[in-house]
Amino acid sequence: MEIRDLQETAALAHLLMSEQELREAFPAFEEMLSFFAVMQAADAQSGDADGGMAASSRVVNAGYFRPDAAPPAREDLSEDMLTKAGERDERFITIPNVL
């Protein structure tokens, strides 16, 4: 584990961190990872026996999901949400140009 790993990770997470901040965060980060390393001892089986399926998720059939129809008497919150945006231009939310 190196500071560079932390830097790349911060970039992926869109967390802007200065050299100083990275150096300060590094010990706590390393501490947690070395704590995580204890899980190696628990490794009862190797490989993804369940094919990547989440162990904690339930399996359901179609009736469980939402039918394709607009819910009746739905309140229109669009104006409220546009007001909550930091910057808007009439019906658009605006940000500084990407390009």
Binding site: D5, L6, T9, L15, F29, Q40, A42, D48, A54, A55
Partner: peptide, 27 residues
């Protein structure tokens, strides 16, 4: 920030097996 960093890290390609998938098995 620390927890976001940790969480991003344990899902990174190359590290998922060692951390995230292992944790799910323990779970």
């Amino acid at each position: 920030k620390l927890r976001i960093l940790l969480g991003t890290f344990v899902l990174r390609s190359g590290f998922q097996d060692r951390y995230y998938l292992r944790a799910q098995r323990i779970r």
